[in-house]
Simulated assay, not measured.
Amino acid sequence: MHRREVLAGLAAAGAGALLPRFAVAEIPAGAGTVRTVSDGNLVLPRSFVLGGLPEEELAPILKAHGVSGDQLTPPCNVTLYQDDTRTVLFDVGAGATFMPSAGELFESLDAAGVAPEDVTEVVFTHAHPDHLWGLLDDFGDPAFPNARLMMGRAEWDYWTDPETVNTIGAERQAFAVGAARRLEMVADQMEFFEDDDEVLPGIVAVGTFGHTPGHMSFDVGGGDGVFVIGDAVANAHVAFARPGWATANDQDPETAAATRTALMGRLAEEARTVIGFHLPHGGTGRVVAEGDGYRFEAADS
């Protein structure tokens, strides 16, 4: 049976309560709407994200958010934008080969009533595995065969540079190899943009560099729309409470910290609705100033 038939059967059997895992409520954004669809979650060593931070200050932050143990399990929220003519994905998830807990995007899109062939554009925040490796299906063919592919020029240049695998560090070498292989296969299809470009009508790229050299966020629909932040703010605990801390999960920790600090201030001041790839509750909510830092106020809280 096809995935769509399985899901339809479950819903008919009264299993519709499963579907909120895959999609949250639609939010108006410019001429269309956005929602998030789940790609599952990651399972990461705590040291990969929080290594080297001051434990005395870190411990109470994690305790307040119920985070314990040696592993973190951040959700993966792919943003889906639709209007009268477009079905746009921001990133494509991890695919089937990165880790067993991720790679659920096709099932989530099915639950949201979207077939891979319906996707008209894919716009990338960056090229880490959990955002890029779902670009190809299990047979090595394009997973979204009718979609235009769009990426920031600096991000493309970094991951397609043969020297990147030698400079990225041992723990991320597989990231570089995997990105280079996939990007080479779609080189003729990729379109490029720069910071502050309108990549599609009503969707403006915003350079948020540091997590990767060319990481981009996107302002979708302006002030009353949403701000897709990708991994510029990659968790709802330390990144909010201490945005200025340089953290191990960013490739350029100091630049990422400066970017995050400025971005959080802007988003809180403008009271923008944000979507974060690794934020909880579907990733949608607002940045609220609190004490010396901020907190994430989820849309469904």
Rank of each mutant, 00 (worst) to 15 (best):
E270K: 10
T212K: 07
A232N: 07
V238M: 06
D224G: 09
H281S: 13
A179G: 08
F218A: 00
Q189E: 15
T273K: 09
P280A: 00
G283N: 04
R295Q: 07
F175V: 10
W245E: 01
A234K: 00
N235G: 01
A205R: 03
P201I: 03
T167Y: 09
G282W: 07
G169N: 03
N235A: 05
A236M: 05
A174S: 14
P201D: 08
E171S: 13
T255V: 08
V220E: 01
A170Y: 12
M190L: 15
L279C: 07
E290R: 11
E171Y: 12
L267I: 02
F209H: 15
A179S: 12
Q189C: 11
N166F: 05
S217G: 12
E194M: 10
E254T: 07
L263W: 12
Y294V: 02
M190N: 08
A257F: 04
V228C: 11
A289G: 11
A271W: 09
W159S: 04
A232C: 09
I203W: 00
G222H: 10
D161L: 00
A239G: 00
F277M: 15
H215G: 03
R260P: 01
D292C: 03
A170D: 13
G276T: 02
E171D: 14
P201S: 08
W245S: 02
H278L: 03
L263R: 03
R172Y: 10
T284F: 08
D161W: 02
R172K: 11
H278V: 04
R182G: 14
T212W: 06
V204A: 07
E270M: 08
A268T: 09
H211D: 12
P280H: 06
A258T: 08
V206M: 10
W159R: 01
V233Q: 02
S217R: 05
P162C: 07
T255L: 14
D250Y: 10
V228P: 00
G214I: 09
